[in-house]
């Protein structure tokens, strides 16, 4: 029983904060339906012209495709890497693995600009040897994003694997399962849902990444955030409002999906 009640002041503050956070979102949605050629509130002239423009523009579609390729690949890589990492840490579980976990978290405390600069030098150097992997290339961006989002994946997977009862590993070994069988038949099935939520998290992080992307791409690989950024700089086109609306919908969908998965798992209690 919780004996603390939420007072009216706290409720009011929460509402104001929420309103403050939501207002830009609420504004951008009607703006995307304006009939005019510049950013403005629609005054009876609702129209879908900016959405049509969006889907007819090869630049916008191209950037969406680029972002999708980058985000899906980076999220896949990050999920696989972090899963493999936490499984190894789980089996070993000693002094060294604790250091390794700390090492993995390092990118989190480095300021993004520093990461961006380092990755800029790295990709340009790689370009000398293999241009298709380095600066302003899809694989380059994918690798850079993977690097940035792996720590988040590791955190998510560490939480998940710490919930696995260690005794089931002993039980599996006692029942004749080797390392691979234990991993495939016991560990991974218990991590399946967490791998999915890790993937979704990593996807969102890569999908909206801009800081590092600005440093390591120029004109070959234009991701969606980058396209929005340049769209805003050159001319303020309501297409930006349209794409923002679509992004809000996509992000909300992914978040709800993640919550639904977690809720479903909470329902399946462990013995």
């Amino acid at each position: 029983m919780n004996i603390y009640r939420v007072g009216w002041l706290a409720k009011l503050l929460a509402l104001i904060t929420m309103g403050f956070l939501m207002l830009p979102l609420a504004a951008v949605i009607p703006v995307s339906f304006t009939g005019k050629r510049y950013l403005s509130m629609p005054e009876g002239d609702w129209s879908l012209r900016h959405y049509i423009a969006l889907f007819n523009s090869s630049e916008w579609i191209g950037s969406i495709m680029n972002s999708a390729i980058v985000a899906i690949s980076a999220a896949l890589l990050a999920t696989l890497l972090s899963t493999a990492f936490v499984i190894a840490v789980w089996y070993r579980n000693n002094q060294w693995t604790r250091w390794l976990i700390g090492l993995c978290m390092l990118p989190l405390i480095v300021p993004p600009v520093v990461s961006a600069m380092v990755l800029y030098f790295m990709t340009t150097n790689v370009s000398h040897i293999a241009p298709s992997l380095g600066y302003d290339s899809l694989p380059g961006v994918i690798l850079a994003h993977t690097l940035l989002i792996v720590p988040f994946g590791v955190i998510n997977m560490l939480v998940a694997i710490s919930r696995v009862d260690r005794r089931i590993e002993l039980a599996a070994r006692n029942l004749g399962a080797g390392l691979w069988q234990t991993t495939w038949m016991v560990l991974l099935p218990n991590l399946r849902l967490s791998m999915l939520t890790t993937f979704l998290l990593c996807f969102i992080l890569s999908w909206e990444e801009i800081a590092v992307t600005l440093f390591i791409t120029s004109w070959e690989v234009i991701t969606l955030p980058r396209q929005i950024w340049s769209g805003l700089r050159d001319n303020v086109d309501p297409v930006v409002a349209a794409i923002s609306t679509l992004l809000i919908i996509l992000t909300l969908t992914l978040l709800f999906l993640r919550m639904a998965i977690q809720g479903w798992r909470a329902g399946q209690q462990h013995p």
Partner: peptide
């Protein structure tokens, strides 16, 4: 010898059942 080759079975405290199976 590894546990699987010892020709014995074990019942664990608090069972250690596989929750996903």
């Amino acid at each position: 010898l590894p546990p699987g080759d010892r020709g014995l079975s074990m019942v664990f405290q608090s069972y250690a059942l596989f929750p996903h199976l």
